[in-house]
Design a protein around this nucleic acid. Sequence first.
DNA 1: CTTAAACTATACCGTTAGGTACAATTTATT
DNA 2: AATAAATTGTACCTAACGGTATAGTTTAAG
Lengths: 200, 200
Amino acid sequence: MSSGRKKSFDEDTALNAAMDVFWQKGYVGASLTDLTKRMGINKPSMYSAFGNKESLFIKATQCYIETKMKPHVELLFEEDVSLKQRLKNHMMSIVTMQCDSEQAQGCYLVLCQSELVSGDIPEQAESILKEADVMPIQLYTELFTSDIESIELGLNKNAQANGLALYTMLKGTASMARSGIDKSTLEYSIDRILAGIGLH
Amino acid sequence: MSSGRKKSFDEDTALNAAMDVFWQKGYVGASLTDLTKRMGINKPSMYSAFGNKESLFIKATQCYIETKMKPHVELLFEEDVSLKQRLKNHMMSIVTMQCDSEQAQGCYLVLCQSELVSGDIPEQAESILKEADVMPIQLYTELFTSDIESIELGLNKNAQANGLALYTMLKGTASMARSGIDKSTLEYSIDRILAGIGLH
DNA sequence: CTTAAACTATACCGTTAGGTACAATTTATT
DNA sequence: AATAAATTGTACCTAACGGTATAGTTTAAG
C-alpha cells in the first residue's frame, strides 16, 4: 500500500455534494467556495482529488446520469406491463425526482444545458451535456420503433416525434418543479401528453 | 428644456440589447462588461441611465414581458376562431419566438426563473420573475373557465390543470428550442398536448 | 526512528466582478 | 461669452473568482 496521510473525506460523498451544488446553481453559478464548503473540504483537497472545476463538473454530471437518470430507464422495459403504464411509471419516476430533491429542484441537466448558449461553458463540459441531451431521444425513439405494443398502436410511425413530445414534456416538468409545482399537479400533465400521443 | 450634454445613445435600443444579453446568459451570467459592450455604452452611462445591474434587469424583464410575451395573448381571444385553433396559434406564436431568436434561444423568463433556486438573485428581481411565472397560469385558467367552447367541451372542469399542462409544455419547448430543436419539430409536441387535453 | 509520500491548511497569485470618483466634454440657458 | 447642467471616458475601488505555492501534518515503508 502507498504511504502518506490518508484522505479525511470520502470522494464519493464529496462528489455527491458537488452534484447538489451544480444542481442548485448550474456550472457558472457554482463557485469554488460554494462547492468546497458543501463538500466539506478545502480547495487544494478538491484540486488534488478532482483536477479542477471543469473536471469536477464532468464527474458530477456523469454521477448524476448514472445514479439519477439511468435508474428510470428500466421501468420502460418491465415485462407484463402495458406500454402506457410503463411510460407512466417511467415519467412519474422522473417527475418524482424532479420534485423530491430538497433544495435543488428540477433537472440538473436541463439547468446546465440552458447555460450552453452563454458560451461560458468549457469544451469537454459542453460535450457531455450535449451527449446527455441526445440520449433520451434515442431511447424513446428506439422504444416506439421496436416495442410490440407500440407497433400495434401505430406509434412507430412517428417514433421520433412521439419520443420528442415526451421528452419535451419532461423538460417542462423539470422547469415547473424548479418553480415549486408539486408532483401530483404535474402528474396531470404527464397523463395528458400520454393521451395526446394515443395512450389513453 | 434642461441643459447639458445630450445622450449619445437611445435608451430603448440599449435596453433591448441588454435584454438580449440576459436572454443569452441569464442574470448571474451576464457581466457588466457583456452588457455595456452589447449596449454600446460604458459603465457610467449605464449606471446613470438605468441605476444598477438589478434595475437594468428589471427594466429588461418588463420590456421582454411587454414586447415578447403579451403580443401572443390576443391570439387567444380572436373572434370566429375555434378554441383549438386559437390555442394552436397562440402556442405556435410563442414557439416561433423561442426558436427564432438568433443567438439567445428559448425563453428569457424560463432561463432566469431557473436561477432563482440559486439564491443569487436580488429581491426585486426575484419578485418580478415569480410574478411573471404566475401570469400564464391565471391566463389559461381564466380562458378554460370562461370560454364558451371550453365550457361546451367540459374543459372548464379541470381549467387550472389544463392550463398548467399547456404551460408546462411551453416551458419544455423553451428548453428544447434552446437546445436547437426547430419549430416544425416542436409543432408536433404542441399538437399532441392539445389533443391530450381533448382538443383534437 | 527515520524517511518519503500523501494529504491538509493557510495564504497568496492574477483576473474579473459590480460599482464609482473625477476630469473632460457637450449642451441649453443666462 | 459665461455659466451651469448633463453625459462621457478613464482610471480606480473593494470583493470574489478560479487556481496554486508552500509549510505543516499524518501515515506506511525501510
